[in-house]
Amino acid sequence: MKRLILSLLLLTSAPALAVDPAEMLKDPAQEARAREIGAELRCLVCQNQSIDDSDADLAKDLRQIVRERISAGDSDSAVKQFLVDRYGDYVLLKPPFNPKTWLLWLGPLGLALAAGLVGRAYYRRQRREGAAPQPLSAEEQRELERIMKDQG
């Protein structure tokens, strides 16, 4: 949330509002693609900010280059690859799925599985160490149903 602070510190000239109308593409569909790609590219000098959100000169250049590639007919992935070829995966705010990021992308799933295992272990231990809650007796069951009916 405080990203502007740094981008301001790094500025070399007067800032412009990010994404200037002058640099936008005529074709709204192409411009929309440019915005979508821009939101996933890192402004390299502002660290945690996309080039779309940044006032930095380099971000402005990259926005223009993205638009040039789109106008030249590149696909979205080709545009991103163009920048990855020059700046590395670092330029992608959404890291690609490769051996370096397997743990990152599968991590949340792994954590969820681990959490599930912890839960299962808890109930198993509970069953082992103490008797499980007794099932309802027939009478209790009838009583429960009666209450349910009253309430429902």
Partner: peptide, 20 residues
């Protein structure tokens, strides 16, 4: 912490941003 993990293990720089 992932960028730190990768960097500390000599894997270079990765970005983990809002899209992730």
């Amino acid at each position: 912490l992932y960028p730190l993990f990768v960097d500390a293990l000599g894997g270079g720089k990765v970005s983990v941003g809002a899209p992730f």
